[in-house]
């Protein structure tokens, strides 16, 4: 299991959490190289189908991070996001996707430390689960085999 190098699709809102990741860099806080960041303007931009797509594509984990409630650059995008994530998390877990594969956080652009801490925590939890096994869409060649 030690050789398992998970890949975690990470959606970061531009204004807070992406800034926090930048700050973590400036501060040289270290975390393992398993994140693949997709920058979006706001956590409210993330639709459930993107998360489903990431899992279908074989991501071992998905992490979504936005601004703290009240901090949203677009006033209230993260509040709608919070409702979407609630439903998404429930339906995915109900279907047998392990809870440890899906993570949400609010990280402000001043929280470089928190970014690194959450990154490490997300990676640890995904690593413990091992590679994603279910809900991966095989390519036609793979399914034929």
């Amino acid at each position: 299991m030690s050789s398992f190098e998970p890949k975690i699709i990470t959606f970061l809102c531009n204004w807070c959490s992406y800034g926090a990741a930048d700050l973590a860099g400036v501060s040289r806080f270290q975390y393992p190289p398993h994140m693949r960041v997709i920058r979006v303007p706001c956590s409210g931009r993330i639709s459930p189908k993107m998360v489903l797509a990431a899992l279908r594509k074989g991501a071992d984990g998905v992490w979504i991070s936005g601004c703290h409630p009240g901090d949203c650059h677009y006033i209230e995008g993260n509040y709608y996001a919070r409702r979407k994530f609630t439903l998404l998390k429930e339906i995915l877990e109900f279907n047998g996707i392990e809870p440890g594969r899906l993570h949400f956080s609010w990280i402000s652009s001043a929280e470089g430390v928190k970014f690194a801490e959450v990154a490490n925590r997300v990676i640890d939890e995904v690593k413990q689960l091992g590679p994603a096994r279910v809900f991966i869409k095989k390519s036609p060649e793979e399914s034929a085999a």
């Binding site: 209230e76 509040y79 709608y80 919070r82 994530f85 609630t86 949400f104 959450v118």
Partner: peptide, 12 residues
């Protein structure tokens, strides 16, 4: 819609 204090214990 949303409420300011919707539960969010699952959000880190």
């Amino acid at each position: 819609i949303f409420c300011l204090d919707d539960p969010e214990e699952f959000i880190l």
